[in-house]
């Protein structure tokens, strides 16, 4: 599961399996790696777990609630900013015209 062997790679990798009773859990992480000649950058985050039970496999996603809330709130702020800018520009156009 992955993309790219070049300077930029984006891969989903399974971790070590953990068994508890009849349940087996395999964690999944997704990593974005950027390489250049004298350095690099890696961003790795958990994306979910594969749960195996009674012969069935289910993927349980891991949701980053904090990041989702931040993105939503900043997007709201930007939306207001754009709306305000549009109103201001329209007002200027009306006053000029």
């Amino acid at each position: 599961m992955g993309k790219g062997d070049g300077p930029v790679s984006w891969e989903t990798t399974p971790g070590d399996r953990v068994s508890v009773g009849e349940v087996t859990v395999t964690p999944l992480s997704q990593a974005l790696s950027v390489r250049w000649s004298h350095g690099g950058w890696v961003w790795n985050r958990p994306v979910g777990v594969l749960v195996e039970r009674d012969g069935a496999t289910e993927k349980v996603p891991i949701i980053d609630v904090t990041r989702a809330a931040q993105v939503g709130l900043y997007a709201l702020g930007v939306l207001f900013g754009v709306a305000g800018l549009a109103v201001w520009m329209r007002g200027r156009r009306n006053s000029d015209g």
Partner: peptide
């Protein structure tokens, strides 16, 4: 980001909220 809790009954994923 989260805490994964595994028991014999199933799996719970509890998010960590900052």
């Amino acid at each position: 980001i989260a805490v994964i809790s595994v028991t014999g009954e199933g799996v719970e994923v509890e998010p960590v909220v900052d």
